[in-house]
Design a protein around this nucleic acid. Structure first.
Lengths: 112, 112
DNA sequence: TGAAAAGTCAAGTATCCACTTAAGTATTCG
DNA sequence: CGAATACTTAAGTGGATACTTGACTTTTCA
């Protein structure tokens, strides 16, 4: 189950173009902070702030070796967000199924 | 393909607890503005603002009959968000597959 | 007709967010 | 050692956001 604050964090993290760009980049393999900053075209400081948001929502993990921090995807956040969306969609589809069944019944009744 | 601004809108819409509560409610069936306001515990005016965000991101549709506006799920937004997440996850999984294959090859080579 | 109901619109406010600059701290290496 | 590199942290700024209150329109119905 995805808790309220966790869902807030994940979707808020995904609601920014630069942060989604980071995720898209990291699905292709790890990258350093400077590489991500260059990709985004913002300062390293801004990139660090984005990374904090991404890590708090379990979308990205990172490890510092020497003076270099290497970032990679953390699939937990992605899975949580996907799970929430799938729950809503399936709840909606099941409701439509039931609704369709009721309408079929009504059609049959009016035919008889 | 989910465009940048569309993705910004959808994920931003989902990043608010009250708006997700509206979506969860609407997967169970339509509701009026006042019903949603009562559910959220905020003013009707605030609810209308949330609904505008949800409609702009194609997560909710609504129709006004007489003086009552009835809201329901619009599956387009949900599908868009789910599609983006699935794309990232599968890109990530494929990368892991390739990485695994390379490691297997290296293992075989070192064995021979 | 006229009052209640349902929603809409505008303005105000407090807070949050993404970004910057500037000044740090480690770490590497010539 | 000392300069360059890679990152970190703090403070400031402009703009967006979530909410409120209050005035308004439209619709219903006794």
């Amino acid at each position: 189950m995805l808790k309220r604050e966790a869902a807030d964090r994940v979707f808020h993290a995904l609601a920014d173009t630069n942060r989604r760009t980071v995720i898209e980049r990291l699905t292709r393999g790890p990258a350093t902070v400077s590489e991500l900053a260059a990709l985004l075209g913002v300062t390293v400081a801004a990139t660090v702030q984005h990374l904090r948001v991404l890590q708090d929502s379990e979308l990205v993990r990172s490890e510092k070796v020497g003076r270099v921090r290497t970032c990679q995807i953390d699939p937990a956040g992605l899975r949580n967000a996907e799970a929430w969306l799938r729950r809503q969609r399936t709840a909606w589809e099941h409701r439509l199924d039931r609704l369709g069944a009721v309408l079929d019944d009504q059609t049959k009744e009016s035919e008889s």
